[in-house]
């Protein structure tokens, strides 16, 4: 029983991490109709920016805000300078550009900061919370809390603000949007900027758990993809629920299904992606997208 509860707690904690990155993936997909494979590396790079600021003696929350702003500008610039020129190219070209971006950011971080792991501070108090025999890390609870807050923010933004609605419109029907006066190009850039912000927050939440290094997001990105696919790429709520489900499933299957054990944990995530795509391609919470061709 104790094992079960502790594994559930730990699964929720990693689920929170997957969910935070999955949110960024969903964000960019909703805003620009692109699946961004470089999302993890962008988040990693933002986290290094935060680390640099912290190392220079900037207080945590100031560094946090500065990183968020810098990441927003960075995301914007990436869209303007790199994605823009291939905007009208086939989807495969955009995917390749994203993968190129992934490799470049990864090597750049390694070149600048080296591959040695670095500790990254958590804004939450270090003392774990004990409920009976089950231990919750305060940072884990913080991750879950902040992820839910981001979700709420996104929900409100996309549903109730004119800017959010304009962004959705621009992604779903660029031609009509342009006709009603929405600057579609800028909406796309804004989408990249906001996704970079979500990624930066995710990175700063992840780094205290997995330690900061250039490859810290590579494993997490796969789980984030599984989460977003499971929940539905069109639904922020789905991405978060998906994240928690993947985190918990992974731990329970690894612990209680001897055949799978810890050796095939990652495989579970991949099977999940394929399974969802086969049975319900739009995910648990997603809408089926209908396109006129």
């Amino acid at each position: 029983m104790e094992t079960l509860l502790q594994q559930l707690a730990s699964g929720l904690a990693s689920g929170g991490i997957y969910a935070s990155l999955a949110l960024a993936l969903v964000m960019i997909y909703q805003a620009t109709d692109v699946v961004n494979f470089a999302q993890g590396e962008m988040a990693m790079f933002s986290t290094y920016l935060a680390w640099t600021l912290l190392n220079a003696g900037v207080p945590y929350w100031a560094a946090f805000v500065a990183t968020v702003v810098l990441s927003f500008v960075g995301g914007l610039l990436i869209e303007r300078l790199i994605i823009r020129p291939v905007e009208d190219a086939p989807i495969l070209s955009i995917v390749i550009v994203c993968i190129g971006l992934l490799v470049i950011l990864n090597s750049l971080a390694g070149w600048i900061y080296s591959y040695i792991i670095k500790p990254f501070p958590s804004p939450f108090p270090p003392r774990p919370l004990r409920l009976g025999s089950v231990v919750f890390g305060t940072h884990d609870l913080g991750v879950i809390g902040i992820t839910l807050l981001m979700l709420l923010g996104l929900y409100v933004f996309f549903r109730f603000t004119p800017l959010g609605l304009a962004m959705r419109a621009a992604a779903q029907n660029p031609v009509s949007s342009r006709l009603v006066g929405i600057r579609v190009g800028w909406m796309l850039a804004l989408g990249w900027g906001l996704a970079a912000v979500l990624g930066a927050v995710a990175g700063m939440l992840v780094a205290p758990v997995v330690f900061l290094e250039p490859n810290m997001m590579s494993g997490i990105l796969i789980y984030a993809f599984a989460s977003a696919t499971l929940g539905g790429f069109t639904s922020p709520v789905g991405a978060v629920v998906g994240g928690f489900l993947v985190g918990i499933t992974e731990n329970l299957v690894g612990t209680y299904v001897p055949l799978i054990g810890t050796e095939l944990k990652l495989t579970v995530a991949l099977v999940l992606i394929i399974g969802v795509l086969l049975v319900r391609p739009s995910g648990l919470f997603g809408r089926a997208t209908v396109r006129r061709v």
């Binding site: 594994q7 992974e250 050796e263 944990k265």
Partner: peptide
């Protein structure tokens, strides 16, 4: 308990080892 080099964390394994 084993882990893959691609795993994000080994926390789940540590819990099992403790228990």
């Amino acid at each position: 308990q084993s882990y893959e080099v691609t795993d994000p964390t080994v926390e789940s394994q540590i819990i099992n080892l403790k228990n």
